[in-house]
Amino acid sequence: MKRLLYLIPLLLLAATRPAPIHLHTTWNGHGAGALDTTTARAVLLTPLKVTDDKGTEYTITRFRFSYRQNSAFQDSSGNIVRNSQLFTRDYFNTNLVDSTWSRIISFELQPGEAFTVDGVVVKDAKGAKMLAPNLELTIQ
Results as ranks from 00 to 15, higher is better:
112 G>I: 02
64 R>S: 12
135 L>V: 06
126 K>V: 13
122 V>A: 05
17 R>C: 14
62 R>H: 15
115 F>W: 02
116 T>Q: 10
104 I>P: 06
64 R>D: 10
69 Q>C: 04
38 T>F: 11
14 A>L: 15
22 H>G: 10
6 Y>K: 06
78 G>A: 09
43 V>C: 00
136 E>S: 12
46 T>L: 01
86 L>T: 12
59 T>S: 15
139 I>E: 00
41 R>Y: 01
10 L>I: 14
77 S>P: 02
115 F>A: 04
26 T>V: 13
84 S>P: 02
102 S>W: 00
35 L>E: 01
38 T>L: 14
1 M>S: 11
46 T>P: 00
126 K>R: 13
120 V>R: 08
121 V>C: 02
112 G>W: 04
24 H>L: 14
101 W>L: 14
34 A>N: 10
97 V>T: 15
99 S>L: 14
20 P>W: 05
65 F>C: 02
31 G>E: 07
38 T>C: 02
73 F>I: 03
114 A>D: 00
132 A>C: 10
109 L>W: 01
115 F>V: 08
104 I>D: 09
12 L>K: 03
80 I>R: 09
56 T>Y: 09
39 T>S: 11
132 A>V: 09
87 F>K: 05
87 F>N: 08
60 I>V: 15
20 P>N: 06
129 K>W: 03
98 D>S: 14
8 I>A: 09
63 F>L: 10
10 L>R: 03
40 A>T: 08
63 F>W: 04
106 S>K: 01
38 T>I: 15
99 S>V: 15
113 E>F: 03
73 F>R: 08
44 L>V: 08
5 L>S: 06
124 D>C: 14
117 V>Q: 01
13 L>I: 13
96 L>P: 00
133 P>F: 07
136 E>C: 04
32 A>R: 07
12 L>H: 05
63 F>P: 02
98 D>V: 09
98 D>P: 09
112 G>D: 06
18 P>R: 05
78 G>R: 04
16 T>F: 10
92 F>C: 04
93 N>L: 08
140 Q>M: 08
47 P>W: 00
